[in-house]
């Protein structure tokens, strides 16, 4: 069996989604951890030090390319799957099963993912792109990201977009976290219910902490 056959089968495509999804989840842990340094109440000193660590080493910059690849594969494969799956039923139903069979967020992964993608484009254009281009795409001098956060999050509409982005992320993760493990073959019900609970906890906590960052800055808590 060829690798291309494995990863282009319906199960293989889901494996790609699950593996990249879990990789992106691991990135969220790093991202939320570093950003939580804004609450050290030291005018961003600790946060900027952590941001400097992430922006001043070739090792991490190479890993960043891997992260980009993870994002791109997850996004492209997700969109392809969404369109392919939709094309399997040309004539729809008059009355839909709706919430009687599944949760709305489980059925809306494509939509939630697209909302997160739109958020991601705004987010990268506000922080990552200006910072990296300021560095000349190598290891040049970085922007003061803490100051940049404060300026960005002084606008109410930006804060609202970020909170909505985190809301989409939360529901996307509630389904995605446990679904990834099912796709990887965890079929033991004892573990599945545990993974489901951990997934809900993870999704809510991570999304809430992310959402609190722009809110804290807007309300002047940091």
């Amino acid at each position: 069996m060829k690798w291309s056959e494995i990863f282009t089968s319906s199960v293989g495509k889901k494996l790609v989604m699950g593996l990249t999804g879990l990789f992106l989840i691991s990135f969220l842990v790093v991202h939320v951890g570093i950003n939580a340094c804004i609450w050290a109440n030291d005018d961003g000193a600790m946060f900027n030090r952590a941001a400097h660590f992430m922006g001043s080493s070739y090792v991490i910059r190479i890993l960043e390319i891997g992260l980009m690849a993870g994002f791109l594969i997850h996004i492209i494969q997700g969109l392809v799957l969404e369109f392919q799956n939709r094309s399997k039923r040309t004539v729809g139903y008059q009355v839909n099963l709706g919430n009687r069979g599944s949760k709305w967020y489980s059925r809306s992964m494509g939509l939630l993912g697209t909302l997160i993608l739109l958020f991601l484009i705004i987010h990268l254009s506000q922080f990552w792109y200006p910072n990296r281009s300021h560095q000349g795409w190598l290891l040049g001098e970085e922007l003061n990201l803490f100051d940049r956060m404060k300026t960005t999050f002084s606008e109410l509409w930006v804060v609202i977009i970020y909170v909505l982005g985190c809301f989409s992320l939360c529901w996307h993760l509630v389904h995605g976290f446990q679904s990834a493990f099912r796709t990887l073959g965890v079929s033991n019900n004892r573990y599945l219910s545990m993974i489901n609970n951990i997934g809900i906890g993870f999704s809510v906590i991570v999304s809430l902490v992310f959402a609190m960052m722009p809110v804290s800055m807007y309300l002047g808590w940091v």
Binding site: S10, L81, N85, K88, G101, S102, Q178, S179
Partner: peptide, 14 residues
């Protein structure tokens, strides 16, 4: 020509 599974659980419910 069947679609890919996205673990929504509708199948099990019905």
């Amino acid at each position: 020509g069947f679609g890919a599974c996205t673990n929504t659980g509708a199948c099990e419910a019905v």
